[in-house]
Protein backbone atom coordinates (compact mmCIF):
# COMPACT_ATOMS: atom_id res chain seq x y z
CA UNK A 1 0.00 0.00 0.00
CA UNK A 2 1.35 3.38 -1.00
CA UNK A 3 2.50 5.76 1.67
CA UNK A 4 1.23 9.36 1.61
CA UNK A 5 3.27 12.29 0.37
CA UNK A 6 5.41 13.32 3.37
CA UNK A 7 4.42 16.97 2.81
CA UNK A 8 0.75 16.07 3.03
CA UNK A 9 1.43 14.10 6.16
CA UNK A 10 3.37 16.96 7.70
CA UNK A 11 0.58 19.43 6.97
CA UNK A 12 -2.02 17.05 8.36
CA UNK A 13 0.01 16.70 11.54
CA UNK A 14 -0.22 20.45 11.97
CA UNK A 15 -4.00 20.28 11.77
CA UNK A 16 -4.35 21.27 8.12
CA UNK A 17 -7.82 19.99 7.17
CA UNK A 18 -7.36 19.87 3.38
CA UNK A 19 -4.23 17.79 3.93
CA UNK A 20 -6.10 15.48 6.23
CA UNK A 21 -8.88 15.22 3.67
CA UNK A 22 -6.30 14.05 1.14
CA UNK A 23 -5.39 11.27 3.54
CA UNK A 24 -9.05 10.37 4.01
CA UNK A 25 -9.53 10.21 0.25
CA UNK A 26 -6.44 8.07 -0.18
CA UNK A 27 -7.21 5.52 2.53
CA UNK A 28 -10.95 5.48 3.18
CA UNK A 29 -11.64 2.65 0.74
CA UNK A 30 -8.98 0.39 2.23
CA UNK A 31 -9.95 1.22 5.79
CA UNK A 32 -13.58 0.52 4.94
CA UNK A 33 -12.70 -2.83 3.34
CA UNK A 34 -10.64 -3.76 6.37
CA UNK A 35 -13.46 -2.75 8.70
CA UNK A 36 -15.94 -4.61 6.53
CA UNK A 37 -13.95 -7.80 6.91
CA UNK A 38 -13.56 -7.32 10.64
CA UNK A 39 -17.17 -6.48 11.37
CA UNK A 40 -18.81 -8.41 8.54
CA UNK A 41 -21.49 -5.73 8.60
CA UNK A 42 -21.75 -2.89 6.13
CA UNK A 43 -23.22 -0.30 8.50
CA UNK A 44 -20.83 -1.20 11.28
CA UNK A 45 -17.95 -0.90 8.83
CA UNK A 46 -19.05 2.62 7.91
CA UNK A 47 -19.20 3.54 11.61
CA UNK A 48 -15.78 2.05 12.26
CA UNK A 49 -14.29 3.86 9.24
CA UNK A 50 -15.64 7.20 10.39
CA UNK A 51 -14.50 6.66 13.95
CA UNK A 52 -11.07 5.53 12.79
CA UNK A 53 -10.44 8.71 10.83
CA UNK A 54 -11.81 10.85 13.63
CA UNK A 55 -9.37 9.21 16.05
CA UNK A 56 -6.61 9.51 13.50
CA UNK A 57 -7.29 13.24 13.28
CA UNK A 58 -7.14 13.54 17.06
CA UNK A 59 -3.86 11.71 17.35
CA UNK A 60 -2.06 12.43 14.12
CA UNK A 61 -0.01 15.09 15.87
CA UNK A 62 1.55 12.27 17.87
CA UNK A 63 2.34 10.09 14.87
CA UNK A 64 6.11 9.96 14.71
CA UNK A 65 6.59 7.86 11.61
CA UNK A 66 7.98 4.90 13.54
CA UNK A 67 5.71 2.62 11.53
CA UNK A 68 4.24 3.11 8.10
CA UNK A 69 1.32 5.52 8.08
CA UNK A 70 -1.00 2.87 6.66
CA UNK A 71 -0.05 0.49 9.48
CA UNK A 72 -0.71 3.19 12.04
CA UNK A 73 -4.09 3.94 10.48
CA UNK A 74 -5.14 0.29 10.21
CA UNK A 75 -4.16 -0.21 13.80
CA UNK A 76 -6.53 2.57 14.81
CA UNK A 77 -9.26 1.07 12.64
CA UNK A 78 -8.68 -2.28 14.26
CA UNK A 79 -9.02 -0.76 17.73
CA UNK A 80 -12.21 1.01 16.67
CA UNK A 81 -13.64 -2.26 15.40
CA UNK A 82 -12.76 -3.96 18.68
CA UNK A 83 -14.39 -1.16 20.67
CA UNK A 84 -17.47 -1.26 18.48
CA UNK A 85 -17.83 -4.99 18.78
CA UNK A 86 -17.72 -4.67 22.56
CA UNK A 87 -20.57 -2.18 22.48
CA UNK A 88 -22.70 -3.84 19.82
CA UNK A 89 -22.91 -7.43 18.78
CA UNK A 90 -22.46 -7.57 15.06
CA UNK A 91 -24.47 -10.23 13.34
CA UNK A 92 -22.50 -13.41 12.81
CA UNK A 93 -24.06 -13.75 9.39
CA UNK A 94 -23.72 -10.76 7.13
CA UNK A 95 -27.31 -9.91 6.37
CA UNK A 96 -26.27 -7.16 4.01
CA UNK A 97 -24.12 -9.34 1.87
CA UNK A 98 -25.36 -9.60 -1.65
CA UNK A 99 -24.44 -12.37 -4.03
CA UNK A 100 -21.25 -11.39 -5.76
CA UNK A 101 -20.76 -11.69 -9.48
CA UNK A 102 -18.77 -14.74 -10.42
CA UNK A 103 -17.43 -15.50 -13.82
CA UNK A 104 -18.71 -19.06 -13.65
CA UNK A 105 -20.71 -21.37 -11.48
CA UNK A 106 -17.47 -23.05 -10.47
CA UNK A 107 -16.03 -19.73 -9.32
CA UNK A 108 -19.11 -19.07 -7.26
CA UNK A 109 -18.85 -22.46 -5.61
CA UNK A 110 -15.20 -21.94 -4.77
CA UNK A 111 -15.85 -18.50 -3.32
CA UNK A 112 -18.70 -19.73 -1.26
CA UNK A 113 -16.45 -22.48 0.09
CA UNK A 114 -13.72 -19.99 0.86
CA UNK A 115 -16.16 -17.70 2.64
CA UNK A 116 -17.38 -20.62 4.70
CA UNK A 117 -13.83 -21.69 5.46
CA UNK A 118 -12.83 -18.16 6.49
CA UNK A 119 -15.65 -18.22 8.99
CA UNK A 120 -14.08 -21.23 10.67
CA UNK A 121 -10.82 -19.41 11.45
CA UNK A 122 -10.21 -17.85 14.82
CA UNK A 123 -10.46 -14.06 14.89
CA UNK A 124 -6.71 -13.41 15.09
CA UNK A 125 -5.82 -15.82 12.30
CA UNK A 126 -8.66 -14.55 10.13
CA UNK A 127 -7.61 -10.94 10.59
CA UNK A 128 -3.98 -11.71 9.85
CA UNK A 129 -4.93 -13.68 6.77
CA UNK A 130 -7.18 -10.91 5.42
CA UNK A 131 -4.61 -8.19 6.03
CA UNK A 132 -2.03 -10.11 4.04
CA UNK A 133 -4.13 -11.77 1.38
CA UNK A 134 -6.85 -9.20 0.74
CA UNK A 135 -5.15 -5.92 1.55
CA UNK A 136 -1.74 -7.11 0.43
CA UNK A 137 0.16 -5.86 3.48
CA UNK A 138 3.61 -7.15 4.35
CA UNK A 139 4.28 -9.25 7.42
CA UNK A 140 6.02 -6.30 9.05
CA UNK A 141 3.04 -4.02 8.42
CA UNK A 142 0.64 -6.56 9.85
CA UNK A 143 2.89 -7.02 12.86
CA UNK A 144 2.78 -3.25 13.43
CA UNK A 145 -1.00 -3.20 13.15
CA UNK A 146 -1.58 -6.16 15.43
CA UNK A 147 1.22 -5.23 17.78
CA UNK A 148 2.79 -8.67 17.54
CA UNK A 149 6.15 -9.97 16.35
CA UNK A 150 6.73 -10.72 12.68
CA UNK A 151 7.23 -14.36 13.58
CA UNK A 152 3.72 -14.46 14.99
CA UNK A 153 2.33 -13.12 11.71
CA UNK A 154 4.24 -15.77 9.76
CA UNK A 155 2.96 -18.46 12.04
CA UNK A 156 -0.64 -17.24 11.84
CA UNK A 157 -0.47 -17.10 8.06
CA UNK A 158 0.81 -20.62 7.91
CA UNK A 159 -1.85 -21.92 10.30
CA UNK A 160 -4.61 -20.03 8.49
CA UNK A 161 -3.53 -21.38 5.13
CA UNK A 162 -3.34 -24.88 6.45
CA UNK A 163 -6.82 -24.66 7.92
CA UNK A 164 -8.30 -23.11 4.80
CA UNK A 165 -6.64 -25.56 2.43
CA UNK A 166 -7.84 -28.41 4.56
CA UNK A 167 -11.38 -27.04 4.61
CA UNK A 168 -11.33 -26.67 0.83
CA UNK A 169 -10.11 -30.20 0.36
CA UNK A 170 -12.83 -31.50 2.68
CA UNK A 171 -15.50 -29.57 0.78
CA UNK A 172 -14.29 -30.93 -2.52
CA UNK A 173 -14.19 -34.45 -1.19
CA UNK A 174 -17.75 -34.11 0.06
CA UNK A 175 -19.07 -33.02 -3.37
Amino acid sequence: MQEPDPRTLARARLGDLPAFEELVRAYQAEVYRFARHLTRDRTAAEDVTQEAFLRAFRFIGGYRGETRFSSWLFRIARNCAIDASRKQHYPVVDQDARPERASSVADAVVRSEIDAALGTLGAEHRETFLLVEVLGLSHQEVADIQNVRVGTVKSRMFRARQALCRALEDEEAAR
Binding site: A29, Q50, A102, V110, I114, E133
Partner: peptide
Protein backbone atom coordinates in the same frame (compact mmCIF):
# COMPACT_ATOMS: atom_id res chain seq x y z
CA UNK B 1 -6.02 -20.78 -5.54
CA UNK B 2 -7.16 -19.11 -2.34
CA UNK B 3 -5.18 -16.02 -3.16
CA UNK B 4 -6.46 -15.84 -6.70
CA UNK B 5 -10.01 -16.28 -5.63
CA UNK B 6 -9.78 -13.66 -2.88
CA UNK B 7 -7.90 -11.07 -4.88
CA UNK B 8 -9.79 -11.25 -8.14
CA UNK B 9 -13.28 -11.36 -6.71
CA UNK B 10 -15.37 -8.34 -7.71
CA UNK B 11 -14.76 -5.49 -5.34
CA UNK B 12 -17.69 -4.62 -3.15
CA UNK B 13 -18.75 -1.02 -3.68
CA UNK B 14 -17.15 1.23 -1.10
CA UNK B 15 -19.33 4.08 0.16
CA UNK B 16 -17.92 7.57 -0.19
CA UNK B 17 -17.47 8.61 3.42
CA UNK B 18 -15.14 11.53 2.82
CA UNK B 19 -17.79 14.22 3.28
CA UNK B 20 -19.19 12.67 6.43
CA UNK B 21 -15.77 12.10 7.93
CA UNK B 22 -14.55 15.61 7.17
Amino acid sequence: RLRTSLRVRPAEPVPDLVGTIM
